[in-house]
């Protein structure tokens, strides 16, 4: 339920950006590169925090391996993003989408903190599937098309392929707990 609310809020924020874009106008709703970089970075940080929680709470071998992979990959992509914004002299800019992502996943972790054992493992895996789905569709439909700097666009495109891999991997892990 919480997740659905979060996904809806996230989608709504992104849709506003997309609608302005479709009309070819440059109204205040359209995301700029500084905001896009902030959203992508925040999305990575949230999944790193999810992974840290899983490593603290889970004893399941597959859950732990998946969480290690999330730590490793999202850190690698975020490090690359930080290096890029530094090079481009862009200061990532906080925005409503970033706030919705950070809050949505923090709320999710608070919910998962109450679970133990297999119930936690299942909830973590299900959330990783849903979260990667949401982030990937945002990247595909809004963030990548809106990005104007070619290097930022290219990094987001590489990120999307990596995260699509995570989505599939998460689905395999989640299937064990069905």
């Amino acid at each position: 339920m919480m997740l659905k609310l979060f996904a809806a809020a996230f989608a709504a924020v992104l849709l506003i950006g997309g609608a302005a874009d479709a009309q070819g106008t440059n109204s205040g709703a359209k995301l700029n590169d500084a905001q896009i970089a902030h959203i992508a970075y925040t999305a990575g940080l949230a999944d790193i925090a999810n992974a840290r929680q899983a490593l603290k709470k889970s004893k399941n071998k597959d859950i732990r391996a998946f969480a290690q992979e999330m730590l490793r990959d999202h850190k690698a992509v975020n490090d690359k993003a930080l290096a890029l914004v530094k090079k481009l002299k862009v200061t990532p800019q906080n925005n409503d989408t970033s706030k919705a992502i950070a809050k949505g996943q923090a709320d999710k972790r608070a919910e998962l903190a109450k679970l133990k054992g297999k119930a936690f493992d299942k909830a973590y895996a299900d959330n990783e599937v849903a979260y990667h789905k949401t982030v990937n569709s945002a990247l595909e439909s809004t963030l990548i098309p809106s990005a104007t700097n070619p290097e930022l666009k290219s990094l987001l495109e590489t990120g999307l392929k990596i995260f699509q891999g995570h989505e599939q991997h998460a689905e395999h892990v989640a299937a064990e707990f069905k």
Binding site: E69, D73, K161, I162, Q164, G165, H166, Q168, H169, H172
Partner: peptide
């Protein structure tokens, strides 16, 4: 395939 990114 890649175990980490099964889309590969």
């Amino acid at each position: 395939y890649c175990k980490f990114h099964p889309n590969m």
